[in-house]
């Protein structure tokens, strides 16, 4: 564990807490893409198949449970909670993400570290996470003004993988045989997808104005 990875995990945890705060405090999920939440639930379920087979550390196990539990709770809330579900932007959140799921799974069948059930699903989860934010970014562009908590949620979600890139650079420089090309390339693509959001987020923060993404 290094400071970059810890910062990344904490930033990721903060993004989840901000989202939970928004939903429970405002009893609303307007501006949040259910499809991105469902993609993230798939990402965590596919990535943490080793939850019960490999014990790495208490921290690792606890964080895996937190990410799986929170992503499923948010999906459940947005689908079935009788108050929250009413504020879901159903007609704006129309991204056909099964294309993404199919493409990522096909890529994982071709490009993986080892051809085993667990490794193929692990590679699938890495590729899927890289594109999971797309429905959310499309929804932000369509829904015009973005409320603060939603903007902060997306910001922290993007920032966490940027910290992981620093972590991979650090591990590459300090550990003799560290090569995680699948994670690194996917992480770069994932962070790059946030580039324009980060730009508009910075502009809104600098001008102390509401976050506006161009349609």
């Amino acid at each position: 564990m290094n400071i970059f990875r810890l910062a990344g995990d904490m930033t990721h945890l903060i993004s989840v807490l901000v989202l939970l705060l928004k939903i429970y405090a405002t009893k609303s999920c307007s501006g949040i893409s259910l499809k991105t939440q469902e993609l993230y639930a798939m990402v965590f379920l596919a990535r943490y198949l080793d939850l019960f087979s490999d014990f790495i550390s208490l921290y690792n196990t606890v964080m895996k449970l937190v990410f799986i539990g929170s992503s499923l709770a948010i999906v459940w809330c947005m689908r079935y909670h009788r108050v929250v579900r009413r504020s879901y932007d159903r007609e704006l959140d129309t991204f056909r993400y099964w294309i993404l799921v199919g493409a990522c799974f096909t890529l994982a069948l071709v490009l993986h570290e080892k051809f085993s059930f667990q490794e193929v699903f692990w590679a699938f989860s890495i590729y899927l996470e890289a594109v999971a934010i797309l429905p959310q970014l499309v929804l932000l562009q369509r829904s015009g003004n973005v409320d603060n908590l939603t903007g902060q949620y997306v910001f922290f979600l993007g920032a966490y993988r940027a910290f992981y890139i620093l972590n991979w650079i650090y591990r590459y420089l300090t550990e003799p045989r560290f090569t995680r090309w699948i994670s690194c390339v996917s992480g770069l693509v994932q962070t790059a997808l946030y580039a324009d959001f980060f730009y508009y987020y910075f502009i809104s923060w600098k001008n102390n104005a509401k976050l506006q993404l161009p349609a």
Binding site: D9, H12, D50, E119, Y164
Partner: peptide
Amino acid sequence: LKVRNVHDEL
């Protein structure tokens, strides 16, 4: 001991 390639990152 064959070290299985375990993903130690989240």
